[in-house]
Structure formats: structure tokens, C-alpha cells
């Protein structure tokens, strides 16, 4: 029972972390290696707003989300736009920007465990005799709401449909008058905001540390790789598989096997089904 509940919670953590990356890659084929950095960035911005500017949690959260989206837009407009299509340079540039962001925080002295975000509501509930605190329930709830929102957005709104269109066939979508730059900017903004949302939900469970930037990136990439890079349903499924796998490992083995298991999952995926669970069916192009 414990495994079931914590497995679900953990899976939603992974969904929150990974969905932003998938969204951007799925729609615009942009590997945003600055994903983890934006995660940490949002955490610290929220902290600064709450403790230095004395804002209450909700405005601070919203403002920091806006900041995250802005960072995404800036990265696209000033960097990615100019090197779009050059796969190698996209990877290097986003990674470099991510590292620069994370290490700037380290340099500014944001170290140690003194930086925390408040939980939305204190307290613990018992579900089938398993204690779960409200924040963890919030993670699940927010994850569900986010999935539903993204689904509704891409299904029912004009811009959302444009995003889906460009994800399916960029050239055809461009012929129909969908601006590839606009959608990519939007995707980056959304993806970064989602990463920020993940930060706001997950940092209250611990403290804000710079290393989280790299760890988040690793887990996001792991989930995306297992699920098939760019595939939304694959990401969700992979998040559940990895989420439960990790919880099972922690319960039966030990915490530090988590990394090993994740790595093993990735390698197994690469060997057995390289395109991931729901990877796009491109035998000729993806696999060589």
C-alpha cells in the first residue's frame, strides 16, 4: 500500500519535472538542456521574493512562474532562434546557458540547506493507514491539473492546436500559416513555466539546492528517454514506470540504488526499444 501511494506521488513528481522538457522537444524539436537550471532558478526567485521582498506565497509563486517563462522566451529569442536547426549547437548552447545559470547561483552564495519554500498547507492525512502530507497530495493534484490543462489547451484553443500541428509536421503547419518561431517561443515559455511549477511544488518537500538543477535535468531526461523523446503519453507512462521503480528500489534495497536503477532503465530502453515506449515511428531516421 505504501509503495502504491508513494509510487504515485513519486511518479507525479517525475511527470512535473519531465513534462516541460517533453513539451518543448515534442513541439519544436528543441532540446532544452537548460531545463534543470530554470527549475532551480524559479525556486530561488520565489525564495528571494518571499524573504527579501516580503511577498506572500501566492503572488511570489505567480511572479516567479512568470520569470521562468520569461527566461524561456529570452533563451529562445536571443539564443536558440539564431542557431535553430543546428542540432549540435542547440545542445551545447542550452546546456551552457543552464550551467551558467546554476553556477551563478552557486557563486552568489546560495549554498547549503537554509533556503526553503513553505508548503501550501501543513499537516498529514492518513490514506489507508499510510501517512501522506498535504504537500505530496498537492503534487499529485497539481500534476493532474497540469496534464488536464495542457490537454485541454492543445485540444481546444487555437494556439494550442497550432502547437500540436507544428509538432506533427512542421512544414505543413508552416504552409498553413502557423509561425514556427511564435510556437517555439510559446513552447519554451510554457515548458519553462512548467519546470518552474515543478520547482514550486517540489522544493517545499526539501530545501533549495543548486545541485537540484543537475539532478532534475538527469531525471527529466531519463523519463523522456524511456518514454520516447518528445512523446507526451510516453512521458507519462515512463514517469509511472520509473516512479514506481524508484520507490520499490528505495523500499527493498536502499536510497542510493535509485541512480543505478534509473541508469539501468535507460540502458535497457536503449537496447530493447531505442525509441522509447511511444517514440515516433521513424525507423530510417532515428535509428541508424
Amino acid at each position: 500500500m505504501e509503495i502504491l501511494i508513494y509510487g504515485i506521488v513519486n511518479s507525479f513528481k517525475l511527470i512535473l519535472i519531465a513534462f516541460g522538457f517533453t513539451l518543448v522537444y515534442g513541439t519544436s524539436r528543441l532540446p532544452n538542456f537548460a531545463h534543470g537550471a530554470i527549475f532551480v532558478f524559479t525556486g530561488f526567485v520565489a525564495w528571494i521574493m518571499m524573504h527579501k521582498l516580503n511577498l506572500p506565497f501566492l503572488p511570489a509563486a505567480l511572479l516567479s512562474l512568470a520569470c521562468a517563462a520569461l527566461v524561456g522566451v529570452v533563451i529562445y529569442q536571443f539564443i536558440l532562434k539564431r542557431i535553430r536547426g543546428m542540432n549540435m549547437n542547440e545542445i551545447i548552447a542550452t546546456y551552457a546557458i543552464g550551467v551558467a545559470l546554476i553556477e551563478t547561483f552557486r557563486w552568489l552564495g546560495f549554498k547549503g540547506t537554509t533556503f526553503t519554500l513553505p508548503v501550501v498547507k501543513e499537516g498529514v492525512v492518513f490514506i489507508a493507514d499510510v501517512p501522506v502530507d498535504y504537500q505530496r497530495l498537492m503534487v499529485v493534484a497539481v500534476g493532474l491539473v497540469m496534464l488536464a490543462a495542457v490537454w485541454a489547451f492543445t485540444k481546444f484553443t487555437r494556439t494550442g492546436r497550432a502547437l500540436r500541428g507544428i509538432a506533427q509536421d512542421e512544414r505543413a503547419a508552416m504552409m498553413l500559416g502557423i509561425d514556427s518561431d511564435m510556437t517555439a517561443t510559446l513552447a519554451m515559455a510554457l515548458g519553462s513555466a512548467l519546470s518552474g511549477l515543478a520547482a514550486l511544488m517540489l522544493f517545499p518537500l526539501g530545501s533549495i539546492v543548486v545541485e537540484a538543477g543537475y539532478n532534475t535535468l538527469i531525471f527529466a531526461l531519463a523519463v523522456c528517454m524511456v518514454g520516447g523523446i518528445g512523446s507526451w503519453s510516453g512521458t507519462v507512462l515512463a514517469a509511472f514506470v520509473l516512479g514506481f521503480l524508484q520507490v520499490v528500489t528505495v523500499t527493498y534495497l536502499a536510497t542510493h540504488f535509485q541512480m543505478v536503477v534509473t541508469l539501468a532503465a535507460i540502458i535497457a530502453t536503449l537496447i530493447l526499444k531505442p525509441s522509447g515506449f511511444f517514440g515516433k515511428h521513424k525507423e530510417l531516421e532515428e535509428r541508424v
Partner: peptide, 8 residues
């Protein structure tokens, strides 16, 4: 055996 971002 894979192309693209996997190696990175």
C-alpha cells in the same frame, strides 16, 4: 545506434 540528442 541512435542519432540525435541521445549521445549528448
Amino acid at each position: 545506434p541512435l542519432r540525435g540528442v541521445y549521445f549528448a
